[in-house]
């Protein structure tokens, strides 16, 4: 990798950051290349090798940026932190979670489960609606049948009334159940969000900033 490739890779990795942050990083590393090249004992390729993977450097910069805006948010509070800043902080935290491959699988599984739940609930509602339609059909058919055979007519009207009772009972129970279920999910999700907030940040620190020290050679055995 040469200087140009390194810088454009870094720029690409940082494209989601505000332009000011991205430019500052690019300027810093451009200057770094200038300095080392001016010292005259290393080639562009060697410098790139020393600097390491631009992806990892970008991850560090992003983690630091996220930590900074979250800290600002806490310090400044509601008065100065704009809504946009807060939203972007949340965005960065989310990016941090999604960076972990395990979380992607977990998030997908949760998402699919939620879809399944919605489909099941919808199917039950459709079944209940069908019972309702069937009940009305039975009653109508029974009334018509009364003219030809009183016993058949009464039987169908009886079926219809039973079905209407089932429809009303099950339908009401279902509506109450759905409400409770979604309230429960909402509450659980809220609790998890609160609990995970600090954990996520810690993990971002760990992945973004400290990861570098491991690979960068600070943490080696003598």
């Amino acid at each position: 990798m040469n200087r140009k490739e390194f810088i454009s890779a870094l720029e690409r990795e940082l494209r989601k950051l505000p332009a000011e942050e991205r430019e500052a990083a690019v300027e810093y590393f451009e200057e770094y290349f200038d300095e080392v090249l001016a010292a005259g004992n290393r080639t562009e390729e060697e410098i790139c090798k020393e600097l390491g993977n631009p992806k990892r450097i970008a991850a560090e910069i992003k983690a630091d940026y996220a930590a900074r805006i979250l800290e600002d948010d806490e310090k400044i509070g509601e008065t100065r932190a704009s809504r946009g800043q807060r939203v972007s902080a949340v965005w960065w935290v989310l990016l941090g979670i999604c960076a972990a491959p395990v979380s992607i699988v977990l998030a997908t599984v949760l998402f699919v489960l939620l879809i399944c739940l919605i489909v099941v609930v919808a199917a039950i509602y459709i079944a209940i609606a069908a019972v309702g339609v069937g009940a009305i059909a039975c009653v109508v058919f029974g009334l018509v049948a009364l003219f030809s055979s009183i016993s058949t007519g009464l039987m169908f009207i009886g079926f219809g009334v039973v079905l209407i009772a089932i429809f009303l009972g099950v339908g009401a129970a279902m509506i109450m159940g759905t409400k409770k279920l979604f309230r429960f999910i909402k509450r659980k999700a809220g609790e998890r969000r609160e609990k995970n907030k600090s954990k996520k940040l810690e993990r971002m620190y760990a992945e973004g900033r400290y990861e570098n020290f491991k690979k960068g050679g600070v943490d080696y055995e003598e």
Partner: peptide, 15 residues
Amino acid sequence: AISVSESTLYPVLRR
């Protein structure tokens, strides 16, 4: 004095 990687310092200075 210590072995820090070449890229470690940028986030520090930015902060």
